[in-house]
Design a binder for these strands. Structure first.
Lengths: 217, 217
DNA sequence: TTGACATTCAATCAACTGATTGATTATATT
DNA sequence: AATATAATCAATCAGTTGATTGAATGTCAA
């Protein structure tokens, strides 16, 4: 959505200049679609080639093995994930609160406009359990996400906008659980969850910020 | 662990008398193990038969098609899921709080002693998206779980042990998100999450109950 | 014993699947 | 023009996979 600072490890994948890179992306997008529809369970190199409109041998020209294709796609969606965001919430004057609301905005955006992304992400998270190369990328993304949230929590507690009677690490743990839960439960009720989260996490003296004027459509 | 009241739809599956039923369960357990190790992605009828120590044709005698095996397993783990629980928490005098702590106890127990169960459950949840018959069973379990939590929330709010300034449906939504999150994030930090949850959810006048004397090993 | 039924398995089938081969075409370089 | 390189594809291979067949084995009642 907006421009966010991207981590180093994902820049190269998102702006292809050469034909070779574009062709690669076409195949990766095809693989993405196939997995979104049929899961890893139904991922066939032939399906990917057919969807991309190329011969099966051409696919193997760009990705010598199926595993190469999968690892390439892991990088691809990893890069996409950190570059796609929901609309920025109206600034509240408190960076930590803005960051929290951004997280919910992202969640809403993915559920509404990029459901395939969440689905494929889940597929990769599960595959990672049996595929070290995939797990590496998953861990990378998870670390990046966790780091951002941790910074938010520390900032929020330090600045007094978040309640200070709960250790930051505990806040971080439950927030991560909440957002992970949203991603898999499909994300109905995000509105309710956001309201409760703010009620819970904001310090009593900062409750005046607790509600925005209206929800974006 | 303890005896819990079981819903009707899962009794028949758990106490086999006849040889036929036992053989069936042996095959289902084998399928469970294969999925736990390789996911649906790696589920092969031959692997299941081999692990059960029977001929592939014998498997097809009990489960004419692979789909039959999968649906049978869905019922099987559905039944197991409602019958396996963590140890009962020490009674606090408040049913709703006991129920909440039971939920965390269950979460701990599954993470520590039945990690395969959580893994396979996730596999089925994902497969359900492309398999209506599986989804039916998944929905059944989800509904059963949700209903129990909803009852807890309503009870907790009505009895005043839970804070009353948050609508019950919002409490329910975020609690489900939290527990879903725990199940997939692997469940480290359950202790922290439980502490924060109680801090958040208990009404101010009932905080004296908020901590137990010690955590079970 | 005989016959009906349930259970098991070796052998096999047809379709699928990841990957390779060898030829062909397009583009760029000398 | 001649040569090299990149890209593409039809055809094919070897191994896999869900499922079937038909024979063998066991069990129990008549």
């Amino acid at each position: 959505m907006d421009q966010f600072p991207l981590p180093d490890w994902c820049r190269a994948l998102l702006d292809p200049q050469d034909e070779h890179g574009k062709r690669r992306q076409l195949l990766l997008q095809a693989a993405f679609d196939v997995i979104a529809e049929a899961g890893f369970e139904g991922l066939r190199t032939r399906s990917v080639a057919a969807r991309a409109g190329v011969n099966i041998a051409t696919l193997h020209y760009y990705f010598p093995t199926k595993q190469d294709l999968i690892e390439g796609l892991a990088q691809f969606i990893g890069a996409k994930f950190v570059s796609i965001h929901g609309p920025r919430p109206r600034p509240s004057g408190h960076p930590a609160l803005d960051r929290l609301r951004q997280e919910f905005s992202d969640a809403r955006y993915y559920v509404a406009h990029e459901p395939k992304m969440l689905l494929v992400m889940q597929e990769f998270a599960m595959r990672g359990k049996r595929d070290p190369m995939v797990q590496k990328v998953v861990d990378q993304m998870h670390f990046y996400w966790r780091q951002g949230l941790e910074q938010m929590v520390l900032d929020g507690v330090a600045s007094g906008i978040f309640r200070t009677d709960i250790p930051p690490q505990e806040l971080l743990a439950i927030l991560m659980s909440i957002f992970s839960g949203i991603a898999i439960t499909g994300g109905d009720r995000i509105g309710e969850i956001e309201r409760v989260t703010e009620t819970w996490i904001l310090s009593s003296k900062s409750r005046k910020h607790s509600r925005r004027t209206g929800a974006k459509k």
